[in-house]
Write a protein that binds this DNA or RNA. Structure first.
Lengths: 349, 349
DNA sequence: TGAATTTATGAAACCGTTTACATGGCGCTC
DNA sequence: GAGCGCCATGTAAACGGTTTCATAAATTCA
């Protein structure tokens, strides 16, 4: 494997010159440069990245830590990250399934010296101190963090306002008994969506009631299970807001099995707008979250931080969401009389 | 940022001893080791990965090159790769959207010195020489390669046999006018599926006809477009096999718009079994490909190669596929009389 | 008790780069 | 023609680890 020394010898120059040619920052005589290029390609020389980052203490690599790599949502986040990073000549050291704080710390430690910054969607159990600890050695950008950390830019999803909009829409359709399948306790987005749901009800003059909220875990099965609990309520809820699409799908499936028709008997709304949502029967009304943009923004913030490491400029951004009205919310409760005409369904794509 | 020297000074030992403590291969006196640990945690010392891989010429990192990071399929491949790599204490340097050979070479070069091996699903335009060139410096494992390369293990999808099984199944249902929406020319899996389709027909005693094959590009829109071309054929095909699920979905959508019912008027079968397939109305009959296993197998082969670099043991594996019969293929052509009863639909999860 | 062996540790070379600094040659100016 | 500055290039010191080899102390053995 040819090293810079071999190239230098073959080209009849010093290693410093070869290095200069490859980095192109300092002036090198044109003829000399040509000889170096010739030697390099004759020997098929590739500079060694590890050596380079050892001296420069830069790696042109971003660490990416995610709790999971499963499903539409994360895959889009990664794609956004990868794409922008690539365009900006950064590589990405990706690692998924980090469930615990120790896990995150271990993974970060293992990346020490090979990344310039860390983009992280931390597990719910993360603590301020652990992030702060990492931040002391590395620029860190957080995705959907449960708290602010000194010196960390972050980007979140507008879960609260999305949920509020869902409830407002349902109320507009005449619903008053609106239930919710919540996400896992401790998850920021789950809690924001729950908060938004409650706020939405309050704003409509409807007192939120705890017995209308069923705990879920973001997975389809928990949506399915939630149906049973909700159908027991008297009066029966006329609409259900699930904290994400997977649970909404599970819920719809259970409702179907129970002989109820969506949206006629029960309206259903989800959150995330995963690809599948538009293919459901009926197509699922949901809140569109641009996961690709989420990933991209995170990288953009990281690049900003890297460009001005001491600037300490910290940006806290939120990705806007859009209510995507399809047919699953179309039911008007039986009691409703002269409400505005049925739902507008948007064209699917 | 503490280095090994700082730890050595604090602990009152030499850097060699600190190194030994951290790598735990050579015997170190227990008390000394404790002092080193204490010093290290007091200084919050993390070994520098770049420096380490410079001396050891190992990075415990795998490079992962994919043509795209979009959609269910690739996301599962990555998950499989990431999961096994993580379990085996490897990190993954991931890079997507590599369209050209130059792109692949550039990305690989940029990884030089920071990866121990490369797992790659190459773009269709890849050449044997470029892979061989990479192989000269790095262990390489290929996913779905268009050709064999000396010294490269590889893992592919059983596209041929899957397609054959699809045709056999359709023939079994009584279809004889079976059309195909093919994948992009040059793509191995697309071509294998086409080959399997033709073989399937031949085995049923039906001569394959080129006018029943419409070119697609694996995207939904091309499936949609294909419908128009196929519906012009006389006699009209009674069944269409799409080379992947996305195209099948587009196709079904177009058929619906044309007032045709699936499976009654036209049977449709896809390939890949993406998550959405089971949620279609009617649920899509397709060929299940375990993308997660594909990623895992690739890493497994890489680990084998790394464990015995000079062994030259090359393994060429194929991931088996399973025909997943749902309802979209259920139509029996009008001419059919006493064929076996309708399709068995498998429970959806 | 002295030689032989083992054990724990340290000194120093090395991995492949980048880069601050030194140097030598050349063209200008006065 | 001496002095000066500039340009192209080389020398050598990092960067932060690992590992070989030497060595001193501790242990074993006759």
């Amino acid at each position: 494997m040819a090293t810079i020394r071999d190239v230098a010898k073959t080209a009849g120059v010093s290693i410093a010159t070869v290095s200069r040619v490859f980095n192109g920052n300092t002036a090198v005589n044109e003829d000399t440069a040509l000889q170096v290029w010739a030697a390099a390609s004759a020997l098929d020389y590739w500079p060694n990245g590890a050596a380079r980052s050892l001296t420069t203490s830069r790696s042109n690599t971003l660490g990416v830590l995610l709790p999971d790599l499963f499903g539409d949502f994360f895959s889009e986040v990664i794609r956004g990250i990868d794409q922008l990073a690539k365009r900006e000549k950064y590589q990405t050291l990706v690692s998924g399934s980090h469930a615990s704080v120790e896990d995150v710390l271990a993974a970060t430690r293992a990346m020490r010296g090979r990344i310039d910054g860390l983009v992280m969607m931390a597990p719910d159990s993360i603590t301020v101190e652990s992030v702060a600890k990492i931040r002391r050695r590395l620029p860190v950008v957080l995705i959907s963090p449960p708290f602010a950390v000194d010196g960390c830019s972050s980007v979140s999803v507008a879960s609260f306002s999305g949920a509020r909009a869902v409830v407002a829409h349902l109320v507009g359709l005449g619903h008053r008994e609106i239930a919710m399948v919540a996400g896992p306790a401790g998850n920021v987005d789950a809690e924001e969506r729950l908060r938004g749901y409650r706020r939405g009800l309050l704003e409509a003059g409807i007192p939120p009631r705890d017995e209308l909220v069923v705990q879920g875990d973001f997975r389809e099965s928990s949506g399915y299970a939630a149906a049973a609990a909700l159908l027991d309520r008297r009066p029966r809820p006329t609409a259900v807001f699930a904290a994400n699409d997977c649970m909404a799908i599970g819920l719809m499936s259970a409702l179907g099995n129970a002989g109820l028709s969506v949206p006629h008997d029960v309206a259903v709304v989800g959150f995330d707008n995963i690809t599948m949502a538009q293919y459901m029967r009926p197509p699922l009304t949901t809140v569109h979250v641009d996961a690709y943009a989420l990933g991209q923004k995170a990288v953009r913030l990281m690049l900003d931080t890297l460009a001005d490491p001491e600037g300490g400029k910290v940006t806290v951004q939120t990705i806007d969401v859009i209510l995507k009205v399809r047919s699953s919310c179309g039911a008007r409760p039986a009691v409703a009389t002269n409400l505005p005409a049925g739902p507008k369904t948007e064209p699917q794509r």
